[in-house]
Simulated assay, not measured.
Amino acid sequence: MTYTLLIALEVLFWALLLGGLLTRYALQHPRLGALLLTLAPLTDLALLGLSAADLHRGGTATFAHALAAVFIALSVTSGRTMLRTLDHLVQRGLRRQPLQRPRLTGHAHAHAERRGWLVHAATWLIGTGLMLGAAAWIAAPERTAALTGAARLWTLILAIDFLVSFSYSLWPRKPHNA
């Protein structure tokens, strides 16, 4: 699988997502917008299928295969949140309303960081499960080294994220005024 295919499918994913939202609100066609939004996750299924087919045909895993697993895991764990956030941003943007997001501090910020880490952990679980599952399925370590290497790297990143995210429970973020 090439990086070009990976990029093309991700661009298509975001084009369908943004196109669906703009069609829904700017063009005032909610049914067509819903159809486009429904098609967006199918690009991730195509990505999964193409990655599996490539490896099954004897291809050697690359970092693109690992990224495919990451993108699929992100869609599963964060797809609804991303869609809600984009939906909100598009609605506000079309109404030309400024985005006002309060800066979280103290316990609220620590809670948000911990929750973010839990989402990251769920994404890691699905993504590394896909990577290591593919490596086990292929059963040729010389062809799947990129997958196992990416899983190890992501595990390190998850551990660092844990330390940072949970540090706010011990040392809460202070307000700017303090």
Rank of each mutant, 00 (worst) to 15 (best):
W154F: 10
I157K: 10
A68R: 05
S165E: 00
I160H: 04
W124R: 01
L118V: 12
L99W: 14
G106W: 02
G127A: 04
A136E: 09
G127S: 04
T123H: 14
L50C: 04
T2M: 08
G93L: 00
W124F: 13
T105V: 13
L17E: 03
M131E: 08
H176F: 14
G127W: 05
M82T: 10
H29L: 11
T38Q: 14
H29I: 02
G133C: 09
A52C: 10
D44I: 11
A52G: 06
S75C: 08
R103P: 00
A53M: 12
T43F: 05
G49W: 06
F166A: 08
V76F: 11
H120Y: 09
W154C: 01
L158D: 00
T38W: 09
R31V: 09
A178T: 12
M82F: 11
V11L: 07
G79T: 00
A140R: 12
Q91F: 04
D87H: 09
P172C: 07
A146Q: 01
W14G: 06
G116K: 08
T43P: 00
H120M: 15
L50G: 04
T60F: 11
A66P: 01
A61I: 02
T128N: 09
L42A: 07
S169D: 14
R80N: 11
Q100N: 13
R103N: 04
F166C: 13
L37P: 00
A159Q: 08
A122F: 05
A61V: 07
S51N: 09
T2K: 10
L130K: 08
A135K: 04
R95N: 14
A112F: 12
L37N: 02
L55N: 01
W14Q: 09
A108D: 13
G33I: 02
L104C: 03
R24Q: 09
L158R: 04
L153C: 09
I160R: 11
G58I: 07
T4K: 07
F13H: 12
A136C: 12
Q28I: 08
W171M: 14
G149E: 03
L89K: 08
Q28N: 11
A52E: 11
T4W: 13
F71Q: 06
L86T: 01
R143W: 00
G106N: 01
R80D: 13
A122M: 03
L89N: 06
S75R: 11
F13N: 04
Q100C: 05
V11D: 01
V164R: 11
T123L: 15
T105S: 12
P141F: 07
L125A: 15
S169P: 02
T4S: 14
L170W: 15
L32Y: 01
H107W: 14
R143Q: 09
L5P: 00
F71S: 10
R57P: 10
M131Q: 09
I157G: 12
L32N: 04
Y168Q: 06
Q100W: 03
L170A: 11
L153G: 10
L47Y: 03
